[in-house]
Design a protein around this nucleic acid. Structure first.
Lengths: 225, 225
DNA sequence: GCAAACTTTAATCATTTGTTTAAATCTTTT
DNA sequence: AAAAGATTTAAACAAATGATTAAAGTTTGC
C-alpha cells in the first residue's frame, strides 16, 4: 500500500475562470459523468475516461487524485441535483398539491428523457457503496418536513384528500415517474416498441400520472359509515 | 487471444444425480447468483465467486468455461423466472382482473422481500449487455397477448373499466410494486426508517396497490358528456 | 524576458484479474 | 485392484488496470 500526498493538487482558486466548459478538469468530469452513468463504477476504466475526455491518463489522477475520488464527486453532484430539484418544487408555498405533483412529474420526465441512465446508475451504486450518503442527503432531507408534506397532512385532516401515508404517496409519485426509465429495455422488448414510441409513451404518462395520483388521493365516500 | 476448446467440460449426463444442492457446480452457481446480484458483473471477481463458493478458482472455468458464460446462464435464469411468474398469473382464465393484480403484487412483494437485489441487478446489466435478450424474452413475450390483456380490453369496451392503455396499466402495476425495492436506500434515508420499517411499509403496499390500481381503472363519470 | 508555478506527456510500476496448465486426488468401471 | 475417467488443486501466465514519476511544455507574475 502506497501513500500519495505531497503532490499538489491543481489549485482550485484560479485567478480567472477561463472557459470552464472546456477546461481539462471539466472535460474529465463530463467524460466520467457519461461513462460512470453508462457502465457503473466497476465497469468504467480510467483509460476509458481519459480517452473519452481526450486527455492523458495521468491527468485524471492529477486533478482528482483517484478514480474513487472522482466517482464520489460525481455521485454527490447527481444526488445533490436530484434532491435540489425536488426540494424546490415541494417547498413552494404558492402552489397547490396538485400543481406540485404536475411540476414534479413534468420535470423528471423531461430530465430523464435527456439523461435516462442516471436513476439506475445512482440507485445501483448506492446499494453497496459504503459512501456516506447520509451526510449528503441529510441536508436535503427536509423533504420529510417539506411544505408539500404539510399540505398533505392538512388535506387529510380537512377531509379534502383520502387518508394516505405521505411516504406511500411520495413513493407512488416517484415510482410511476422514474421506474419506466429504469425498466426501459424490458418495456421496449415486452411491448415491441422502439425508443421513439417509448418517448411518446412517457410524454403521455406526464399527463396521466397527476390524474392517477388525483384518483388515488381523492376522498372515498364510504357507504357504510 | 487464446482458443479454449478440447478440454472436456464436465459431462452433464451423470448416471446418478447426486445431491444436486451441494454439488460443486451448484455451489458455484449459488455463489455467483449472490455476488452478481450484489455487485453486478464488472464488480464481481472470479476469485470472489470461488471463495464464496468455497472452491478452487479453476473450477469456475472447468464447469462454466468463463465468467461471461456463467453470467449469461444466471441472467437467463433470472429473466426466465420473472416472466414465468408473471405469465402464470396473467394467463389464468379463472381469475378476475382484480384478482390477477392482487396475486401479482402479492407474489412480487414476497419474492423481492427475500431477494431485493434482483431487479436492480437485472435492469442494470440489461442496459449495456449486448446479450441477446430478445431471444430469451420473446418466448415469454406472450404477456402482450395474455389473457389479462384481453380482459382489460374487454373491460374497456364494456365500460366496466376506464379507458387506459394496457401498457400504461402494466407499467403502473410493476412500477408501484418493484420500484420501492430499487429505491430502498434512498427511501430509508429520506424518511429515516430502518429495514424492518421498510418491510412493514412494503407489506402495507401489498394491500394498497391493488386498491390504488382499482381507483385508477375505475370508470370516471364525466359530467359534461 | 525570466523565474516560478501550473499543466501535460510518455513511460513505467505494482496489482488485480480472467484464464490455463499440469499434476494430484478421488470415483467409477472392469 | 488396476485402468480410465472425473474432479480438484496449486501454480503460473498474460492482459488489464489504477496509479506514479520524471521530464517537457505552457502560462503567469514580476
Amino acid at each position: 500500500m502506497k501513500l500519495c500526498f505531497a503532490k499538489p493538487l491543481a489549485l482550485m482558486a484560479k485567478k480567472e475562470v477561463k472557459a470552464i466548459d472546456s477546461s481539462t478538469e471539466e472535460r474529465i468530469k463530463l467524460a466520467a459523468h457519461k461513462l460512470f452513468a453508462q457502465k457503473g463504477y466497476a465497469g468504467t476504466k480510467t483509460r476509458d475516461i481519459a480517452s473519452e475526455a481526450g486527455i492523458n491518463l495521468a491527468l485524471l489522477n492529477y486533478y482528482f487524485r483517484s478514480k474513487e475520488k472522482l466517482f464520489e464527486l460525481i455521485m454527490r453532484e447527481h444526488i445533490q441535483q436530484f434532491f435540489q430539484g425536488m426540494f424546490q418544487v415541494l417547498n413552494d408555498e404558492n402552489t397547490s398539491i396538485q400543481q406540485k405533483i404536475e411540476t414534479l412529474v413534468s420535470r423528471y420526465v423531461d430530465t430523464l428523457m435527456l439523461k435516462p441512465d442516471i436513476p439506475i446508475f445512482v440507485l445501483s451504486e448506492l446499494r453497496n457503496s459504503p459512501m456516506n450518503l447520509a451526510e449528503n442527503i441529510q441536508k436535503n432531507m427536509q423533504i420529510k418536513n417539506s411544505y408539500f408534506m404539510k399540505q398533505i397532512k392538512e388535506g387529510i385532516s380537512n377531509g379534502t384528500i383520502d387518508n394516505i401515508h405521505p411516504v406511500q404517496l411520495m413513493s407512488n409519485l416517484i415510482s410511476l415517474t422514474v421506474f419506466p426509465f429504469i425498466a426501459n429495455p424490458i418495456l421496449k422488448t415486452i411491448h415491441g416498441i422502439d425508443q421513439e414510441q417509448f418517448n411518446t409513451f412517457m410524454l403521455e404518462r406526464k399527463k396521466l400520472i397527476p390524474l392517477w395520483i388525483a384518483e388515488i388521493i381523492k376522498p372515498k365516500t364510504t357507504i357504510n359509515k
